[in-house]
Design a protein around this nucleic acid. Structure first.
Length: 853
RNA sequence: GCCGCGGUGGUGGAAUGGCAGACACGAGGGCCUUAAGAGCCCUUGUCCGUAAGGGCGUGAGAGUUCGACUCUCUCUCGCGGCACCA
């Protein structure tokens, strides 16, 4: 006896068999290749290219890429020429740390990791255009990362300076401000960073601060992202003023956003790091001690200390430029270094911090702003609201904040101050003391530093008492290749391990041909991702097709400039239509790459001001226990396991179904099974309930509703409800007596295709022998089919639902008729009995509400 | 402190100002099976009630409205960002 009748007749849904088969086929036919200059409208979908870690693909990658894959597939079906590329961001600390841990050279381990990532991506059936694969560690790629640096240098936007940097003792390198979390820890490794003075390369991102804010108007970023960028840049407008120190040549420069409170300044505060503080400390022991103590505090000590303010009176006085009043000068660390002028005029009556400080040290408090209900009595707290200026001679009666402009105008006219803008954003620290990065393409030449002409031409850097000219490596000598180093551990001294590559370091100066030293610092791991979205456009010229390049003579290839030569490609493809990535990159990669693109625009090699037209971020996928996935918690979900057990289609659908795309969500194994069940049901129904007979009116209605819903939801990136609506459809299909007509089933397969590309391709064989479902046009819903013939109208009494009634479309247009039907209902009659109807509100086809008394 | 986002069943979550809880998970019951699994069917916000039916329900409170998960205000809790930033 056969086991059951069914099992013998119907082939089981077997993703392990179907999926690899189609993946192979798609690759062979180049199904997802984007065509340059194609006549169809272009559509550029970008996901953040991964850093190929040793851990392999994360389910978080899958969430983002599957969803954008579905989006890309729909766009293709809608007739767009879609570019959906992938590459590898393989330089940087994580790769190097991993290599150190595994005792394998990064140049060996990185390709291994890439191979694994690639295999995993392919097993998901993502529709990447693999012909454009890029790798930031390829010399043909980083040659152009270096070229961009040279351009920055040429325009004076890359410079070396002694600046306080964030040093990570664990990673043995300095970091950019953006890489340090508010508690002072390194965002990658979690170790506490320290402040150090060090000579560093910086990129002048501050020169672009206003444009980075202003041009957010040109793009569509989600509110959250735009706000965070604006906050980070932290623009504030105000005035800069000078206070003379009594009996001294020194002057204290202050920046204030409240020049209107100038008459209320009762003391001044210098940051301990302010050079004037240092000067004062020379003759004042107490001040010197205080400064020393303040500078030794770590970030965490400062946090522990809270807002409790400390300070020291210098005994000196400053002269208020408006009224020549003499006020004491203090040094206190609540005035921080690195912002403004590192000195303030303190107005305790109208600033919370100054108020606290004044109370603690018994300093005078003088109100100069009167609020609407305010009085001039002793203040219990600082008054920071709007009001009228008082006690301020010429300014009395001015209203703030409106009249602050007038105050600044007044000050400017008298030559006492000027309008000034300050930013939280600081220049981007662009050098790292690590091996695994792009070498910075400059050399240091002592000889050229002596030469007077060169002196004008080059920046001079003093290293250990000797002046060196910083000579850029000429473009035709790029790339400056990273030498192979057996030992590449960071030294911890602040010097890059590259300094040990003597043969490489000692070189010839490109300018004077004399002996010179190469720069040994490398670029941060953000360097390669600054322009990768452009690299995809001409990937074939960036080492992507190695064989081609190796055949060319080296000189030929350096003479050409990929940016200048491929502007037509950039004009065709740029800007990116939608850029999707992690929220954590908002003030890192996203901000950096906008800055770099703007620079490239300024030097005329890219066609627009902004690289990304639209930016959305996705939520993090947490472990099943609701915590961040991590080895130490043992809660990591490996996508391979899910693919092996349920197939890629199930994994993809689950990650889209799990919740709203932009929301953080915990993994749930049981819910994955639910999605697997869904696909199994589709498979089953396709084999049992598809026929040549007409689909019932009800089911046709449901189908077209679903087509409409899925089309809209995909467009709005509401992947979870798109999947839910298809589940609803199959529930109706399952319970429907007849099932779907072949042609209607075909339509259903088409809308499912972006979500479950393998299964739908397999089932599509019944409709087309040769043409892939992914080449088919996106179905349109039939407006006539979704017109309802009958509607349910809710009957309310005073807004409470008491009954529902069915009416034809025609009837629903007649309020009087509906009212009458409703009134006749037994349930309603009960409520209307002996009560007076004050009015009846009718919303056509929806609700009839009787207001009764 | 400032800015932004959010609070809906046992769980993840749905709902152009118009039937709250779609869809899924979990749970309970049943069918099928030697059994397990898979599959299928029913129930599942909560309280009262055998039932019919009814009361209550979207963090709390007020408001606007014929009608509020949805809009406004106040509060509260949670998440994220910025922060002695002058």
């Amino acid at each position: 006896m056969p086991k059951t009748k069914r099992e013998n007749q119907i082939p089981k849904y077997n993703p392990q068999e179907i999926e690899p088969k189609w993946q192979k086929k798609w690759e062979e036919t180049g199904l997802y290749r984007a065509l340059d200059f194609d006549k169809r409208p272009k559509f550029y979908v970008l996901i953040e290219f991964p850093y190929p870690s040793g851990a392999g693909l994360h389910v978080g990658h899958v969430r983002s890429w599957s969803a954008m894959d579905a989006y890309s597939r729909k766009k293709r079906m809608e007739g767009k020429n879609v570019l959906y590329p992938i590459g590898w961001d393989a330089f940087g600390l994580p790769a190097e740390n991993y290599a150190l841990k595994m005792h394998v050279h990064p140049s060996t381990i990185v390709p291994q990791n890439i191979a694994r990532f690639k295999k995993q991506c392919k097993s998901l059936g993502l529709s990447f255009d693999w012909s454009r694969e890029i790798n930031t560690t390829d010399p043909e790629y980083y040659k152009w990362t270096q070229w961009i640096f040279l351009k920055f240098f040429e325009k004076g936007l890359a410079y070396r300076a002694d600046v306080p940097v964030n040093w990570c003792p664990a990673c043995k390198t300095n970091l950019a401000d953006e890489e340090v979390l508010p508690d002072g820890t390194h965002e990658r490794c979690g170790n506490l960073t320290e402040k150090r003075m060090q000579k560093q390369w910086l990129l002048r991102i501050t020169a672009y601060a206003d444009r980075l804010i202003e041009d957010l108007k040109l793009v569509d970023y989600s509110q959250k992202i735009a706000v965070q960028q604006v906050n980070w840049i932290g623009r504030s407008e105000g005035a800069e003023l000078e206070f003379k120190i009594k009996n001294s040549e020194l002057k204290i420069k202050v920046f204030t956003t409240r020049p209107d409170t100038l008459y209320g300044a009762t003391f001044m505060v210098l940051a301990p790091e302010n050079p004037i503080s240092t000067e004062i400390a020379k003759k004042n022991k107490k001040a010197a001690e205080y400064i020393k103590r303040a500078q030794n505090k770590t970030e965490q000590e400062k946090i522990a200390e809270g807002k409790d303010k400390t300070g020291v009176d210098t005994g000196l006085t400053a002269i208020n430029p408006v009224n020549n009043e003499e006020i004491p000068i203090w040094i206190a660390d609540y005035v921080v270094m690195g912002y403004g002028t590192e000195a303030i005029m303190a107005v305790p009556a109208h600033d919370k911090r100054d108020f606290e400080f004044a109370k603690k040290y018994n300093l005078p408090i003088k109100p100069v702003i009167l609020g609407s209900q305010g009085s001039e009595k002793e203040l219990a707290e600082a008054f920071v609201g709007d009001g009228k200026i008082i006690n301020s001679e010429d300014w009395n009666g001015f209203k703030v904040p409106q009249d602050i402009k007038k105050v600044i105008g007044w000050l400017e006219k008298k030559g006492l101050g000027k309008r000034e803008i300050h930013y939280h954003l600081r220049d981007w620290v662009f050098s790292r003391q690590h091996y695994w990065g792009e070498p910075i393409p400059v050399v240091y030449c002592a000889n050229c530093a002596i030469d007077k002409i060169s002196n004008i031409k080059y920046q001079i850097s003093n290293i250990k008492g000797t002046d060196y000219a910083i000579v850029p490596v000429p473009e035709d000598q790029l790339p400056v290749e990273l030498p192979y180093l057996e030992k590449y551990e960071p030294s911890g001294t602040g010097e890059s391990p590259l300094a040990n590559a003597k043969d490489w370091v000692n070189t010839q100066c490109p300018a004077c041909k004399g002996p010179a030293r190469r720069e040994t610092d490398t670029m941060p791991n953000w360097a390669g991702s600054n322009w990768y979205y452009l690299a995809y456009l001409f990937a074939d010229k960036l080492g992507n097709q190695k064989s081609k390049i190796k055949n060319q003579k080296s000189k030929e290839r350096v003479r050409s400039n990929v940016f200048e030569e491929n502007q037509d490609l950039a004009r065709y493809w740029m800007p990116v239509d939608i850029y999707q990535g992690g929220f954590e990159h908002t003030t890192l990669h996203l901000l950096y790459s906008r800055f770099v693109y703007k620079f490239l625009y300024d030097i005329g090699v890219v066609p627009g001001k902004e690289p990304y037209k639209k930016r959305r971020s996705h939520g993090v996928v947490l472990g099943p226990d609701g915590r961040k996935m991590s080895k130490s918690f043992g809660n990591i979900i490996n996508p391979d396991d899910i693919v092996n057990k349920f197939g890629a289609d199930t994994l993809r659908i689950y990650e889209m179904f799990m919740g709203p795309f932009d929301q953080t969500i915990a993994w749930s194994e049981e819910s994955v099974e639910g999605c697997f069940r869904f696909l199994k049901r589709v498979w089953q129904l396709s084999l049992t309930k598809v026929s040549d007979k007409n689909t019932s009116v009800k089911l046709v209605y449901k189908l077209h509703k679903t087509i409409k819903k899925v089309s809209e939801d995909l467009e709005n990136m509401k992947f979870n409800t798109a999947v839910a609506s298809m589940m609803e459809l199959i529930n109706s299909w399952k319970s429907d007596q007849g099932g779907l007509n072949k042609d209607d089933f075909r339509k259903f397969l088409l809308i499912l295709a972006p979500f479950a590309p393998h299964m739908t391709e397999e089932l599509w064989k019944n409709f087309s022998k040769n043409k892939s479902i992914h080449k088919e046009p996106w179905p349109k819903f039939d407006t006539a089919a979704i017109v309802e013939e009958e509607v349910t109208i809710v009957v309310q009494i005073n807004g409470k639902i008491r009954d529902t009634l069915r009416a034809s479309m025609e009837e629903s247009g007649n309020q009087q008729l509906i009212e009458n039907i409703a009134k006749k209902s037994q349930k309603i009659e009960k409520y209307l009995n002996s009560r007076k109807i004050k009015k009846a509100v009718y919303v056509k086809g929806r609700v009839i509400n009787f207001v009764v008394v």
